[in-house]
């Protein structure tokens, strides 16, 4: 069984920063492997260690600078990596779900994995949509926001738990092949060992452009335009109750009764 894990390098922002046009000034940006994808990767590596999967391949849509994060994924146990980049991607100012879906579809069709894992969302743009759109596009089944996966994958079925709101989990059986979007907390992602880091340098990291994948540059012509970016205004118009504890507690009690929510 082959597993494909879509991992992404995301930008991190310092506490104090400036916005330049519709982007954060890159002096204030750092980079890391997307937190959610780290859990997806760990889940895949555990499946291989359990003997359920034979191979774990990562796929990343990103420029050469992102190879530091891809090597990190290889150091943590992925067997090989595919990185997709193209001038068309470099020129796109906003990569929407459609564009990412089209690019990843080409990789899924080439690799033909039995199971695709990826994070629920990315820490920067937080679209939270690519996994499910990809599944639909390639005709796989799917489940979003998975916080538990049974590791036997018996009878071509993935038994998962989906983390719903309000502390409720949905138990669902999903037929393979499938795409699962993985929630943080599903496992404890490992740190890369020194041995893993050394081995990662020798693992295959294939770079593919659009022509290699049979993609047309129009695949990334999105219909969305980012028109502004700004820091949310602080809305500190707080009314401070002054006085003794009895007085302030009295003011709060009055408010609660006024709202009709206290006895």
């Amino acid at each position: 069984m082959k597993l494909l894990v879509a991992v992404k390098e995301v930008a991190t922002v310092e506490d104090s920063f400036e916005v330049d046009g519709t982007e954060i000034d890159d002096r204030y940006l750092g980079a890391r492997l997307n937190e959610w994808d780290e859990y997806a990767l760990e889940e895949a590596v555990q499946l291989r260690e359990a003997g359920v999967a034979d191979e774990v391949v990562t796929v990343t849509v990103g420029p050469e600078e992102h190879e530091q994060s891809i090597r990190k994924a290889l150091a943590k146990g992925a067997d090989r990596a595919v990185r997709v980049w193209d001038d068309a991607l470099a020129d796109a100012d906003l990569l929407d779900v459609r564009a990412k879906t089209d690019v990843l579809r080409a990789v899924v069709e080439e690799e033909e994995p039995d199971l695709v894992l990826t994070g629920v969302q990315s820490g920067d743009d937080s679209w939270g949509a690519t996994g499910v759109a990809l599944a639909d596009e390639v005709g796989y089944q799917w489940a979003a926001v998975v916080n538990d996966l049974e590791h036997d994958l018996a009878d071509g079925t993935a038994s998962v738990r989906r983390e719903l709101e309000g502390g409720v989990e949905e138990l669902t059986d999903v037929e393979l092949p499938a795409v699962l979007t993985v929630q943080t907390g599903i496992n404890q992602p490992r740190y890369a060992s020194m041995r893993g880091i050394r081995q990662a340098q020798r693992k295959e990291l294939a770079v593919k452009d659009f022509s290699a994948l049979g993609l047309d540059p129009s695949a990334v012509e999105g219909s969305l335009e980012r028109t502004a970016m700004y820091e949310p205004e602080s809305e500190s118009d707080v009314a401070v109750w002054e006085g003794s504890s009895d007085e302030t507690a009295g003011a709060l009690a009055d408010l609660l009764r006024e709202k009709g929510v206290a006895p």
Partner: peptide, 9 residues
């Protein structure tokens, strides 16, 4: 970025 900025699209 986890709510650090808002964008319009």
């Amino acid at each position: 970025y986890g709510g650090k900025v808002e964008t319009t699209i």
